[in-house]
Design a protein around this nucleic acid. Structure first.
Lengths: 199, 199
DNA sequence: CCGCCGTTTGGACGAATGTCAAGATTTTCT
DNA sequence: AGAAAATCTTGACATTCGTCCAAACGGCGG
């Protein structure tokens, strides 16, 4: 019991620091976020970060994993109980648009970190894991849409994810610069995409 | 005349330095590329960079513009003289796959810089211009495919670009980590995508 | 040959970075 | 309460960063 609480406290603080780090990263992006900047987002001093994390890479990696947790939790609810294909398409479109609108800066960070993972091998595995879970999330929707339509998907899971991700990324880009139609276009794009992926 | 050659020499050197900078950026990514690192990719010393560029932002911005030039030149050849829709789809797929295989590091840099532009306003306009020309390039293919098929596109240019870009980005990601089927999957994805975008 | 002007060098600067360690503070256990 | 262990602060360190500048270089017209 004693050891339990000790480990838990330690892990709790790690989580707390990582969450603050995520806020800083979402604000400034990976390239412009230093350990001292991260510390300013907490109530602690910068030295503490090295008490809970060996170095910057371990901190950022932990952040990426933490982001993944939230991501998976957010989406694992999965497809709702839509009764018809158009209803499912609408639900899926609304879900993605809501996710974008709810936390655009976090999604911006996600694309930033995914780009960084192409240069820094340290992040690659965690980023790949997140990509997989997002792909699964997309595929569940495609799968469900095909089932409701009584047909089969005509694409692979990676293909479907790539197409949805393209729509999402562009919508995010436009949403961030203030395009009011970005969300609606994303919804429309998703509604039109789903039928194209089944036959 | 005298002034012409002077200005030309100045611009030539700017281009030369920017090209070296692009190589450095493609190697290391934006976050890890310093002015001194860039200078090491040239035969000059680091101080020279501030003789030709006011500051780092101007240099990188110039690099982005220069990248755009190459990009536009690369693609403005546009759609070939394919006679049938499948032939055009194949040509388009091969073109994109060839572009990826030919310079994967430059494309990696492109996605990095596009992410950075979401944080650094200085790059935003240039990146948006590149995005537009890429969108035009994609749309020319969709348009030609529709014409050859005797039907109309069922999507908007931004939609088409988003979908193609999603496929391309994922293919790049997989190609960079050594997946041998990444290029073939990209080709297959493009060939399947085009018919889905017309009716 | 000299002097000029566009180039280029190399070093210096202050600021910022990641890292670390010694000490202060707080919590926990007996 | 007091000792022990944990948590946290503070300041320092060696680098590295972007930027700037005085001096040196080099070719070309006078």
């Amino acid at each position: 019991m004693r050891r339990r609480t000790k480990v838990d406290k330690f892990e709790d603080r790690r989580r707390e620091l990582a969450d603050a780090a995520l806020l800083a990263l979402a604000d400034l992006g990976y390239a412009r976020t230093s350990l001292r900047t991260i510390a300013e987002h907490t109530k602690f001093s910068h030295g503490l970060l090295h008490y809970y994390f060996a170095d910057k890479v371990e901190l950022i990696t932990y952040c990426v994993r933490r982001y993944k947790e939230a991501c998976v939790k957010r989406y694992e609810g999965g497809v709702g109980e839509a009764a018809t294909p158009p209803a499912l398409a609408e639900a899926c479109a609304d879900g993605l648009a809501a996710a974008l609108e709810e936390a655009p800066l976090m999604h911006r960070l996600w694309y930033d970190l995914r780009s960084q993972s192409l240069f820094e091998e340290a992040f690659r595995d965690d980023v790949a894991e997140i990509d997989e879970s997002l792909q699964d999330m997309i595929w569940r929707n495609v799968r469900a849409y095909a089932d409701l339509s009584g047909v089969e998907p005509t694409c692979t899971p990676p293909e479907a994810y790539a197409l949805f991700d393209g729509l999402f990324q562009q919508a995010l880009q436009r949403h961030l610069v203030g395009a009011e139609d970005a969300l609606d276009d994303l919804r429309r794009g998703v509604r039109k995409l789903l039928p194209r992926l089944v036959s």
